[in-house]
Nucleic acid binder design. Structure first.
Lengths: 264, 264
DNA sequence: CAGTGGTCTAGACCACTGG
DNA sequence: CAGTGGTCTAGACCACTGC
């Protein structure tokens, strides 16, 4: 697929590429091909989250291109938050385990103060079981109806106040070995667990947001009176190869917090 | 301020910079300074939205730096959507007037099909008047309470169905000459009007999203039965120099549409 | 065909980190 | 001090646009 291997001769990869493409005259610059190769290595776990990848010079030697070309490839990976550059140290595989990335996908912030001011979240698992995917869940996770999934429900509290009620579904196959018990007893950040124990790293997510009236059960779990509308946030999170690995549906209180979004 | 002018001698700008900075050892690379200068020109209207800016070679000559340095500056401006690159043609000042940028800040999409499938929006101005900013509006727009603002209320319909009820506030000063009548009779995209007639270009926005129960008046304007919660989207839009230029508060129906957000 | 942005290279030097 | 990422340059060539 990748025409970068043509670089073993001395012709420019770009010119070779034009011929190799055939039907699609899709020109792919060298640095994009290098980016693809690095992506492969990330996906295959050649370097684990938190670890340093080889230096730009090393990668340049490995791929037989100039440092500048490797640099441009890494620039894009850094822009996509797949990798973190640290001047004077090296380039590291991004991880959700670090404090700063802890809530990377959580856009709910308190109306007053910032996320740090209310301290760490308290996570309370309400329910957790193994079951079969219904049609909707299967579609979102690109599974077949009836495939095994793990389902969990939890309440997140900030400063002691229940604020988020969250249901989440995981495809059982990639999380082989994950039991309902393990999930029930775990109270840390989910994405850190997935990385550390199942080599599943979430790199991207897509959310659908709606306003919704909670039912009686949901009200009780969040200790709310009926009649207060909530934000429904449905998230699908994806790994390196754009495979959906988690479906999550959160109900957010928005009387004390709000969902903040920056548009560029 | 900008140490780029030190480039008239042959020492590297960076070394000069280190001394010039003084208190803050804040090192600012050349390309950042060039970016700042280009930003100035954009802000001052040297090149208008839709027009081409000078070629990279021209700018390199003008600033007495290499093409690569100008290139890196423009790369960042392009990443921030302030400028659009077109291979073989040139680099253009971004504009909201183009079809593709029409709904750049509108993240509400239909549950089925995409935004194009429901055709163009119908905009119905409900009310429009000149008034004085209250405390909340003043804070959001960085004005003083009592400063003159223009307020408008409108309903946006898609495929004939009222879907969004929107209130918006504009500081009167930068929109000098804009009357309530002009706004009332205008039915096109707002940001295009601002650019064309007042040289106010929105480059960035910040939204606060909540779930909310509409009151009787809001229900009537959207032709909704009471009891359906809506999405409240409060947006502040900013110009080049990060000055807020518009406060907008939309109520979105989310039974047929949803707010879509991509997280990276 | 000339002019524009886009890619690639090679080399020099700077800023930052850690031993 | 060596090693890493970050900046800057100069030059060659490619891809695309429009005349």
């Amino acid at each position: 697929m990748s025409a970068v291997f043509s670089k073993i001769d001395d012709t420019l990869a770009s010119s070779v590429d034009s011929f190799a493409a055939g039907a699609t005259p899709a020109f792919s610059p060298l640095y994009q091909q290098i980016k693809g190769l690095i992506l492969q290595s990330l996906h295959h776990g050649e370097w684990k989250p938190g670890e340093a990848i080889p230096s730009e010079m090393d990668l340049a030697a490995r791929f037989k291109v100039s440092q500048g070309t490797v640099r441009k490839a890494i620039d894009e990976l850094a822009a996509e938050n797949l990798v973190v550059r640290r001047q004077g140290k090296g380039t590291y595989v991004a991880t959700h385990a670090e404090q700063q990335m802890q809530y990377r996908f959580l856009k709910l912030v308190p109306d007053k103060g910032d996320a740090t001011s209310e301290g760490p979240a308290h996570r309370q698992i309400v329910d957790c079981k193994r079951q079969r995917a219904n049609a909707e869940t299967a579609r979102a996770l690109e599974l077949h109806t009836g495939d095994a999934v793990l389902q969990a429900r939890r309440v997140l509290s900030f400063a002691g106040v229940p604020t988020i009620l969250e249901d989440l579904w995981l495809p059982a196959a990639p999380f082989k070995g994950l039991t309902a018990e393990r999930l029930r007893d775990y109270h840390g950040p989910m994405y850190a667990l997935f990385e550390a124990e199942f080599s599943v790293r979430m790199v991207r997510a897509s959310e659908k947001i709606r306003a919704l009236m909670p039912d009686a059960e949901q009200c009780e779990l969040l200790q709310l009176d009926q009649g207060m509308p909530l934000l429904s946030v449905e998230r699908v999170a994806y790994t390196y190869n754009d495979k959906p690995m988690e479906l999550r549906r959160g109900l957010y209180r928005t009387d004390t917090h709000h969902y903040r979004n920056e548009l560029n």
